[in-house]
Design a protein around this nucleic acid. Structure first.
Lengths: 352, 352
DNA sequence: ATTAGCACTCGGCCCAAACGAGTGCTAATA
DNA sequence: TATTAGCACTCGTTTGGGCCGAGTGCTAAT
C-alpha cells in the first residue's frame, strides 16, 4: 500500500508519543535514533518495521529528519517546537514549592540591585547547565522615593535617586551657576516632595511639565527642576547579564565550527541578545525560540528559553537560558518560568 | 666532530638572531619550523644543514624542542622567555606618542569609574586580539573628598562617599537608633570635616582611633563614627574585568582539549586570575608569565602579560592580556605597558 | 494494519601504503 | 675548523580499500 503523502495533519496518539519519546531520547543521548534499539529501550509493543513506518510519516510531516540516508532520525526545529508545546500544555504553571532554592537572604541586603541580578543569572546558569541571560528592568518604571543633591565641587552636583525598591542611582550633573549647600538642601526637599511616588516615565511624561506650569509661583525652584531633568533624561539603558558561557563550551556539539561561530557572535555582540530579550518583554510568561526561530542570521543551532518579569503589573524585563537546539527543555522551561516568577515577586515586594 | 654537549652558556650573535627569528616565525604561523624553508624565508646565508646544527645546539640548551622526532622545532618556555627578555631590552619604555588612542573624551565624564575600566579592558582586548583583564584599584588607597549620609527610611541610611577621583561609592547601613534629618546633616559635615583628604587605609588604621580618643569632647558625634566605620569596614574588594574571551576561542590551538580546559577554568573561577594579577601589583611595571611560569596548576598552555598601575606613587591595580603561549609578545608587551601607564596617568590626574 | 525478511546504504574504523617535511650523521670541501 | 652536500631514516599525515554494524525502504506474508 502506498503511504499517503502526508504533509500536515494532527498527529494521532501513537505518533505523538513516539515523537515525544524520540526527541527525549535524542536530547539525552545526542545521537540519531534508530528504529530497533528505540523500540526496545522504550518498550513500544510494535516491531521495528512499524516504528520505521511511523518515523517515515513523521519525517514526511517534517517533524524528523535524517542526517544522512540510512542513519537514524533526529528532530527538526518543528519537531522541537511540537515537543516544547506539549510540555507547555502539561506543565503546571502554578507556583508551587520547588527544590530550587533562591538564596533570598543573600539577596536581601544588597543595595546594588545589579549584584542581585548577577546572582540570579549565575544561579540560573548553574541550575540549567547552560548559559543564562538577564535583561535588567526598564528604568522608566522605577518609582522615586527620595532625591538628594550633593555638591561635589567645581559646579558638579551628584544627583542621588533612591527608588522604592531601595536601589540607588547616581548621576553627576554639571551646572553653570553657583549653588550653595543650603540651596541643595532646599532643592532636595522640593524634588523629593514633588516627585516621590511617581514612576520615572510619569515624571518624564507629565510631572515636569506640570511643575513648570507652576513655575511662576515657585520660580526659585527652577534650577532644581533643571538638574533633575538633566539627570533623569539620559538614564541608563537596561543592561545585559550573561553567565555560564563555559557550560556551552563543555557541550561537544557547540564547539564544532558552525555553532562556535554562533557562540562567538553572541558573546561579541551583546546587542543580538538584547534584541531577542526585548522582544520577550512584549509578552507575559514563557517563550521559546528553537533553532531557526531565532531570527538573527548570525545565530545558528541555538535555542533560547526566556520569560518576562514584572514589577507590579508592568512588564519590565526578561531572563532566559541559551543552549543548543538539543536542549533539555523539560528541565529548562519550568526553571526559567520559575525564575521569572521569583524575580517578579522580588522586585514587586521591594517596590511596595 | 662531536658537538660539545652544551647546557648553558651565553648565545652568540648568530644563535640569538636565529632563535629570535624562529620564535617569530612560530608565533606567526603556529607550525613547527623546519630548517630548509626557514633558511629560505629569512634569507639566512647559511645552508639548511648548518641551520640544523644551530638548531641542535639551541635544542640542547633547551630553548627549542621538537614536538616529535623528525618534525621542525618549536620554542620551549625558556625560548619564549629569552625572546621576551630581548624584547624588553630593546623596547623604548619612554611614553611616546602612539597610534593607540585612548578615547579620553569618552572617559572623562563618567562618574562610574567602573565603566571606564570596562572601556579600557575592552580596548585592550580588541587592540591585542587576545583576552584582556583588569583588576580595579585597591579601595584602601582611595582618598575621601566628601561624605554624605542620606536617610532612606526604616532606620536605613545611605552612606555616600565621594572620592577625590570623583568616584561615588554608596553603602546601605542599618542602625538601631532613630536619627533625624538634621542629625544627618550634622554628621555628614562632621565626617567630611574629619576624614576629607585621608586615604581609606589611613582612616581605618588610625583616624578612627584618634577621633574616638577625642570622643569625651564630641560624644554626640559618636553615632556618626559608628556609621562610617560600619560602611567603610567591609568595602568592596577589587573586582576583575574580563573582555575578549571570544578572541581566544578564535585561535585554533586554544579550542583543543587541554587548552580549552584551561580556558574554562579561567572563566569559571575568577579567583585564579585575581591571584595572578594581585601578584602583579607587588612590583612596578611589566611582567610576563609564560606557560608553566603561571603557577596555577589548572592553567596550561597560556601566557599572561601584565602591568601594574598606580595612583600617585602607590601601586593599586593591574591590567593584563591573556593568550596562548604562542602569543605576539612583540605587540602585546608594549601595548600592555602603555595601557598601564595610561591608567596610572588617568587615575592620578583624577585624584589631584 | 502489522510484521518478517531482505537487499541496500553509508558512516566509522582499521590497516596498509605512499608521501613529504624534516632530521642526524658522515664525508667532502673551503 | 666551520660549512655543506648527500643520504638513510623517522614519523605524522593523507589516501584508499575493506569490513562492520546500525539503519533504511520495500515487498510479501500474516
Amino acid at each position: 500500500m502506498a503511504r499517503e503523502n502526508v504533509h500536515t495533519r494532527p498527529l494521532n496518539d501513537r505518533e505523538a508519543s513516539v515523537l515525544q519519546a524520540l526527541i527525549y531520547e535524542y536530547i539525552t543521548t545526542g545521537k540519531p535514533v534508530g528504529s530497533r534499539s528505540f523500540v526496545q529501550k522504550y518498550s513500544f509493543s510494535i516491531s521495528p518495521a512499524t516504528m520505521r513506518n511511523i518515523m517515515f510519516d513523521l519525517e514526511s510531516m517534517e517533524y524528523l529528519k535524517q542526517p544522512h540516508t540510512s542513519a537514524g532520525r533526529i528532530p527538526t526545529d518543528s519537531g522541537y517546537r511540537f515537543y516544547v508545546n506539549s510540555l507547555l500544555d502539561t506543565y503546571d504553571f502554578s507556583l508551587k514549592e520547588r527544590e530550587i532554592s533562591v538564596k533570598e537572604e543573600a539577596i536581601k541586603n544588597e543595595v546594588q540591585l545589579d549584584k542581585i541580578f548577577s546572582v540570579i543569572t549565575r544561579m540560573l546558569s548553574s541550575e540549567s547547565h547552560y548559559a543564562a541571560v538577564m535583561l535588567t528592568p526598564r528604568f522608566d518604571f522605577t518609582v522615586v522615593k527620595r532625591i538628594v543633591l550633593v555638591p561635589m565641587g567645581n559646579n558638579d552636583i551628584l544627583f542621588v535617586l533612591i527608588t522604592r525598591t531601595g536601589m540607588v542611582l547616581t548621576k553627576k550633573v554639571t551646572i553653570s551657576a553657583n549653588v550653595t549647600q543650603d540651596d541643595m538642601y532646599a532643592y532636595s526637599a522640593y524634588l523629593t516632595e514633588e516627585l516621590c511616588g511617581y514612576a520615572v516615565y510619569e515624571i518624564m511624561d507629565s510631572i515636569f511639565e506640570r511643575l513648570r506650569q507652576e513655575r511662576s509661583t515657585y520660580s526659585n525652584k527652577d534650577m532644581a527642576l533643571d538638574i533633575a531633568q538633566l539627570a533623569i533624561s539620559d538614564y541608563e539603558e537596561p543592561r545585559l547579564h550573561i553567565e555560564g558561557i563555559e557550560n556551552l563550551l563543555k557541550i561537544p556539539e557547540m564547539v564544532e565550527e558552525e555553532r562556535l561561530n554562533s557562540l562567538l557572535s553572541i558573546i561579541e555582540d551583546k546587542n543580538i541578545l538584547k534584541r531577542i530579550l526585548e522582544k520577550a518583554i512584549e509578552n507575559e510568561g514563557i517563550r521559546t525560540l528553537i533553532g531557526e526561530e531565532v531570527e538573527e542570521d548570525k545565530v545558528k543551532g541555538c535555542s533560547m528559553v526566556s520569560a518576562s518579569y514584572k514589577i507590579g503589573n508592568k512588564l519590565v524585563g526578561a531572563v532566559g537560558v541559551i543552549g543548543p537546539t538539543r536542549m533539555d527543555y523539560e528541565k529548562v522551561v519550568p526553571l526559567v518560568d520559575y525564575t521569572g516568577r521569583v524575580v517578579t515577586e522580588l522586585l514587586t515586594k521591594m517596590s511596595k
